[in-house]
Design a binder for these strands. Structure first.
Lengths: 195, 195
DNA sequence: GTCTATAAGCCGATAGAC
DNA sequence: GTCTATCGGCTTATAGAC
């Protein structure tokens, strides 16, 4: 049997996560009180504890959900073709995915230090495994002679930092579309690693 | 007349700034209490207000001091030679300066949202003027035909994000020295923008 | 499922003694 | 220059009514 459709729980639960995401991104985890989240949802503070054991779980669930969704989306990427084709797809995917979720990306980078050690370790493992997917493409290109990559780990970190950086300045409706930005970044990444 | 040497004020004042820098970098501005800063310095909380009007001023002074020192250090850079030579000096300077001050760099990027609007505006102006110095080099190289830079603003943001990213993973005593890292990054930046 | 009330404690900042 | 004591208010989380 399916659950009763449209129960208060089904409506309120996602609102809690959305409110926490929005407020954590805007003001930072430590600066946001459970009362502020409750007010954003439109309930009293006690109600929040029906949906989360504590404030830390709210943050961890947001970060872990974001990383899981990122990996799942990347799983759908076409992995055929040569290393350059795979790298171009990665660059366009990474920029597009990040530009579409500025708040989740922001807290995924900014709030790591507010995780408990156990939660931090889990999130770091997910992040590392995403980075490894890019490194694998760079290593394959270097092995085939298509790429010039003296140090694949440093090249990976450099490319990721460069691509993720778009979220710090990009604003929809500005001078460039997301596709324009992806074109410009792919041009730079391609030139930086091509043999 | 010079002030009395080694007064308590001369000793305590820098300790307050250092303690605030260390704790803000480690736990975040919002998560650090004035009591925690006082304990780190080794005084009681009331004493802190002899050195700062409030907690916000502690943060603003750290960020504004960091940006001013960065600009002053960059002012000392050799600006002779062609665009490629100037760009290489910028890359090596930026990486070296940032690797030497990981805590100041960290809070300069992470704590912007905890500034009051007035203070944020001032810091953003300083940051923009630093970015403009890199953009001027890229524009000069494009004008002389040495560089391929379709959009100088985006190239500026991409290079800065890539270079500053070293602070998220670099650890002294690791596999690579700061000079090794600078060599690898200069190789990538040079290839990304050279015509 | 949501509410109110409350526990126990920390917050930034100030006043005034020494 | 540093201390202690204190103000009013905010914090996370829980208990129990409805």
């Amino acid at each position: 049997m399916a659950r009763t459709q449209g129960s208060h729980s089904d409506i309120t639960r996602p609102k809690v996560a959305e409110a926490a995401l929005r407020l954590f991104a805007r003001h930072g985890y430590a600066a946001v009180s459970m009362r502020a989240i409750a007010a954003e949802v439109g309930v009293q503070v006690g109600t929040l504890y029906h949906y989360t054991p504590d404030k830390q779980a709210l943050l961890y669930d947001l970060l872990s959900g974001h990383m899981a969704a990122l990996m799942a989306a990347h799983d759908g990427l076409d992995q055929t073709g040569d290393a350059a084709a795979r790298l171009e797809r990665f660059v366009r995917f990474h920029i597009g995915y990040h530009l579409d979720r500025p708040e989740a990306v922001f807290i995924a980078y900014m709030e790591l230090r507010n995780l408990t050690l156990a939660n931090f370790t889990r999130i770091e493992a997910l992040r590392r495994s995403y980075e490894d997917r890019l490194e694998a493409v760079l290593t394959a290109g270097a092995a085939s002679g298509a790429f010039h990559v003296p140090d694949s780990r440093i090249a990976t970190m450099a490319v990721i930092a460069m691509l993720t950086g778009v979220t710090t300045w990009y604003r929809p409706g500005g001078r460039l579309t997301g596709a324009d930005v992806a074109d410009l970044y792919w041009d730079m990444v391609c030139r930086a690693v091509t043999a």
